[in-house]
Amino acid sequence: MLSVNVRLFGTLSRTFEDYHHSCGLDIAIASRGDIHDLLVHLDLIGESIGMVFMDDKQVNNTTKLNDNARIKIFQPIFGG
């Protein structure tokens, strides 16, 4: 198993009752898992996902998870 810490931005954390933004979520996930597996595990596949970062590097759905990685998941943004 891999352990990763996940921080959810925007409104992504709404369905996680005990979520505290300063701590994030500690997740155990199968070895060799990738970002897509993590999104499935978190039941975020139906959500609009923007950027995902692993240890401050932008990654995509097929990027393999690193043990003890810090993951940040963002929603799409618009601004002005």
Partner: peptide, 23 residues
Amino acid sequence: DEFSAEILPELGSAVLVEPINAA
């Protein structure tokens, strides 16, 4: 639209801080 209907009302334009910083 999720951004204008849900994200902005909850976090305002300040929601941009973290993603722009991460980028």
